Computed example of a mutant assay.
Amino acid sequence: MSNRSTSTQYPSTPDGRYFVVRGRLWRKSNPALDEETRAQLVKELMAARAAVRHSKEEPGKMTLARRRVDRAKFALGERGPVWWRDGEPDLNRHLVKNTVYARWFSQLQEHRDIDIDAE
C-alpha cells in the first residue's frame, strides 16, 4: 500500500513507518521514492494482485503472480530491508499492542471512542 492511500483510511504511526489495520502494523512505502516511480510501482502491485485473483485455479500462474506482488512490495519498501536508517527493527505485521507503539495506539483508540460517543 502506498503512503498516500493509507493516510485517510488507517492511522499512521507518528514516525510514518507503519499504518495500523485491525491492531496490526503494516510497513508503509518508502517515502523517499519519487512520485513517478511510486505510481508505477503501485500500478504494478495492483496488476499483480489482480493476476493473483484471476489465477486461483492455476497453481503455476498463481506462483508467478505472487512473485510479482512480492517484487513490487520489495521495490516499494514494504518488504525486505527497511528504508529507515536509525537501526530500529522492522515490526511489520506485529500486533501494535506488543510494540513500542502500544501507548500511542491506546491513546488514539481512547480519542476515537470519545469521538464516536459524541456523535
Rank of each mutant, 00 (worst) to 15 (best):
M1K: 06
M1N: 08
M1F: 15
S2D: 09
S2E: 09
S2R: 04
T6F: 01
T8P: 00
Q9I: 01
Q9N: 08
Y10E: 01
T13E: 02
P14G: 03
P14K: 12
P14L: 03
P14Q: 10
D15M: 06
D15N: 07
F19T: 02
R22Q: 09
R22W: 11
G23L: 01
L25F: 02
L25D: 07
R27Y: 06
K28V: 11
S29F: 00
N30I: 07
N30H: 04
N30W: 03
D34Y: 01
E36T: 06
T37R: 04
T37H: 04
T37W: 07
R38L: 00
A39S: 13
A39D: 15
A39H: 12
E44Q: 10
L45W: 04
A47I: 00
R49C: 05
A50T: 14
A51C: 04
A51N: 07
V52W: 08
R53Q: 13
R53E: 15
R53D: 12
H54T: 01
S55N: 11
S55G: 13
K56P: 03
E57Y: 07
E57D: 13
E58R: 10
P59H: 08
P59L: 13
G60R: 14
M62H: 15
M62R: 14
T63F: 13
L64M: 13
R66G: 05
V69G: 02
F74T: 12
F74I: 11
L76R: 05
G77W: 10
E78V: 14
E78T: 14
R79E: 15
P81V: 03
P81L: 14
W84C: 00
W84P: 03
W84Q: 02
D86Q: 01
D86T: 00
G87A: 05
G87Y: 02
E88T: 03
P89Y: 14
D90Y: 01
L91M: 01
L91A: 05
L91H: 06
L91P: 07
R93S: 15
R93I: 06
R93D: 13
R93F: 08
H94M: 02
H94L: 03
H94F: 15
H94A: 12
H94P: 02
L95G: 14
L95P: 12
V96Q: 12
K97Q: 11
K97G: 12
N98C: 04
N98K: 08
T99R: 12
T99M: 14
V100C: 09
V100M: 11
Y101N: 04
Y101R: 05
Y101A: 07
Y101P: 04
A102R: 12
S106K: 11
S106N: 09
Q107W: 12
Q107G: 06
L108S: 04
L108P: 13
E110W: 13
H111K: 13
D113H: 12
D113F: 10
D113A: 14
I114L: 07
I114N: 04
D115M: 04
D115N: 05
I116S: 00
